[in-house]
């Protein structure tokens, strides 16, 4: 209705656009957001939501369980002292979700990468301001962001829950320090898992095979290294090639903990993670250097 009460039909229709454009930043942001939505099944049929939601819930379970116990039993000083001895440290919590994290890598990267190659979206993306580099950047942001749902978010939830149950870090300064360590270690570990799984998923154009490739890369390397170090008595440094445990070990080192492999120096742990990330990025770039043209 107009101000004078008359009905009005506004037929905008297709027209020229002279407004502001979001450029490359907008293209990367939109592609990353769209990929993340697609992986989580948002805007898709219910069956696409089941697997990711289930894995995220499983990844959250340890944090929910410990926070639940703390909320139900805590409050009394004696009980709190007991709980502090039982509940895991903030750097150790992600290890409780390791199975869910590995499963999630097999789910996220194939869905984010392989679909685009199979359904023609990749060549369409490359006809936009996105280049192969910025396309990969958008995908790394999407997959890394999604990985943080199972690596980082449970620990933040754990920190908040423990804080409300009076079992969190002492004082505001410590609390902020822990929060920063959780965020930095969680983001870095998510990024390493994201890059490794994306590189493994890039070797095939079939989603099921890509999931298999990701799981095999993660679990295969883990098992082989376990056999080499514990069965064949090789140097503990072989564990640096373990793509599943090294990001977890890095989380511990960022918190200043000795971790599960105290005999390996922190600088080697960081170098291992950087090596996995760099090699994965290299493979990813090599696989995409001519894709979609």
């Amino acid at each position: 209705m107009t101000a004078d009460g008359h009905a009005q039909i506004l037929d905008r229709g297709y027209r020229k656009y002279d407004g502001k454009r979001s450029g490359l930043v907008g293209a990367v942001r939109s592609t990353a957001w769209h990929s993340a939505r697609s992986v989580l099944g948002l805007g898709r049929k219910a069956r696409h939501k089941i697997a990711p939601v289930l894995v995220i819930i499983v990844a959250m379970l340890p944090a929910i369980t410990y926070v639940g116990f703390a909320a139900l039993l805590g409050g009394d000083e004696f009980v709190n002292d007991f709980l502090e001895g039982v509940v895991p440290a903030f750097s150790e919590l992600p290890r409780g979700s390791l199975a869910a994290i590995v499963l999630f890598t097999g789910l996220v990267a194939p869905e984010a990468l392989v679909r685009d190659r199979r359904d023609g979206m990749l060549s369409l993306y490359l006809s936009t301001p996105l280049t192969r580099r910025t396309y990969i950047l958008a995908k790394v942001i999407a997959v890394g962001g999604l990985m943080s749902l199972v690596v980082l978010v449970p620990t933040i939830f754990y920190l908040l829950g423990m804080t409300f149950a009076s079992l969190g870090p002492d004082g505001f300064g410590d609390w902020i320090t822990v929060l920063i360590r959780i965020i930095v270690s969680g983001v870095l570990a998510s990024l390493v898992y994201a890059l490794i799984s994306m590189a493994a998923a890039s070797v095939t154009d079939r989603r099921a095979f890509a999931s298999l490739a990701v799981i095999l890369t993660m679990m295969g390397a883990l098992i082989v290294i376990q056999i080499l170090v514990e069965g064949a008595d090789l140097s503990v440094n072989w564990r640096l090639l373990d793509p599943v445990n090294m990001p977890m070990e890095m989380i511990g080192r960022i918190f200043g903990d000795p971790g599960d492999y105290p005999e390996i120096g922190s600088e080697r742990i960081y170098a291992s993670n950087a090596g996995w990330a760099g090699a994965s990025l290299g493979l990813l770039w090599w696989r995409y250097r001519k894709a979609g043209a």
């Binding site: 656009y17 407004g19 502001k20 454009r21 979001s22 450029g23 907008g26 293209a27 939109s30 592609t31 769209h34 697609s38 805007g43 898709r44 049929k45 696409h48 679909r115 359904d119 023609g120 979206m121 369409l124 993306y125 936009t128 301001p129 996105l130």
Partner: peptide, 21 residues
């Protein structure tokens, strides 16, 4: 095309990638 995506979402997404707010 992505088979399960509505046409409006598909066109909107590519318009965004090409710079539309």
């Amino acid at each position: 095309f992505p088979d399960d995506m509505p046409a409006s979402d598909f066109v909107k997404h590519l318009a965004e990638v090409r710079g539309m707010p």
